[in-house]
């Protein structure tokens, strides 16, 4: 860990004191009930239900086109759903206002326009904008948080660089910094490690584990890297129109649920003891 960020109010939020009464009792941060999403006349998500608890580290898996991106965007209110119910921190999605508590890194977050005249520091600062303080410049606290996050992500020396001049791994850290700079309780990532080399991937996983363990951040991440999901995460959500969830435990055989998701021929050879060899934590 590269040093702890000084984030104002983090203690309060991370300990859950700010959760609404019902959410505090249950610890449920995302509740999805009977969610059905239709896109261009096709049912992409059918009657999905799952719950995310504070502190969970969840891997979302499933075949391409299975609806992972769709379900995340529906939960965040970016695309509409035909039926069902979504609650965030105990509030119905339609009435939810506290967007600063949720950070989302979209699948194409690093595919930005390379010509866009924006420095790394400016990009990360955008993550501090809120509706409540519209029209006002960032204050000293905001700037402190921005610098702290740049440092935490190891990109302080890139602060003045134009975003178009970064490497893939650097871009990844920059967009994650933008997500983290709002000091969220939940971090949602859509295939964040596709397209970067395996060493960068490893560093990225390590960082997410730190955020989950040390900052008690709830993480929900789409990934095709099943080994990483089984070795590092606490739960998995399998999405292929239908949604199945399962905790990941020591003596858990993932193959039945993976077969249901990926098809009968799917076979995932997985042994718990392999994890230790593959991922040296801490």
């Amino acid at each position: 860990m590269k040093g702890k960020v000084d984030l104002e109010g983090c203690d309060e939020k991370c300990d859950g004191h700010q959760l609404t009464s019902d959410a505090r009792h249950s610890g449920k941060v995302i509740e999805v009930e009977g969610l059905t999403v239709v896109r261009s006349g096709q049912t992409v998500i059918q009657n999905a239900s799952f719950v995310v608890h504070a502190g969970d580290y969840i891997g979302m898996v499933g075949p391409n086109g299975g609806g992972k991106t769709t379900i995340l965007k529906a939960v965040l209110g970016v695309i509409p759903f035909v039926s069902g119910r979504v609650r965030l921190f105990g509030h119905d999605l339609r009435h939810f206002k506290d967007w600063g508590r949720i950070a989302y890194l979209s699948q194409n977050a690093i595919a930005f326009d390379e010509q866009f005249p924006l420095s790394v520091r400016e990009l990360v600062s955008l993550g501090r904008l809120t509706r409540k303080r519209m029209g006002r410049p960032l204050g000293r606290e905001d700037r402190k948080t921005v610098e702290g996050t740049l440092k935490y992500m190891g990109i302080s020396d890139l602060a003045k660089k134009r975003i178009g001049q970064l490497s893939g791994g650097q871009k990844q850290r920059v967009v994650l910094a933008k997500a983290l700079v709002r000091d969220p309780s939940i971090l949602i990532l859509d295939e964040p490690v596709s397209g970067v080399d395996s060493q960068t991937q490893e560093r990225f996983y390590k960082l997410l584990s730190d955020l989950n363990l040390e900052r008690k951040m709830t993480i929900l991440m789409v990934s095709h890297d099943l080994a990483a999901v089984f070795c590092r995460m606490s739960h998995m959500i399998c999405v292929n129109r239908l949604v199945r969830t399962s905790p990941i435990t020591d003596h858990f055989d993932p193959n039945p649920i993976l077969k249901e998701t990926y098809g009968e021929h799917f076979q995932f050879a997985y042994h718990q003891h392999q994890c230790k060899g593959e991922f040296k934590d801490g």
């Binding site: 965040l76 970016v78 206002k97 967007w99 600063g100 949720i102 989302y104 979209s106 930005f112 866009f116 924006l118 400016e122 990009l123 955008l126 993550g127 904008l129 809120t130 509706r131 519209m134 029209g135 410049p137 960032l138 933008k178 709002r182």
Partner: peptide, 18 residues
């Protein structure tokens, strides 16, 4: 600042609550 956010990433601006 808000216009910049909107121009750079409309979806993320929405998720910031703007």
């Amino acid at each position: 600042r808000e216009l910049l956010s909107l121009t750079f990433d409309e979806e993320d601006s929405r998720l910031l609550g703007l």
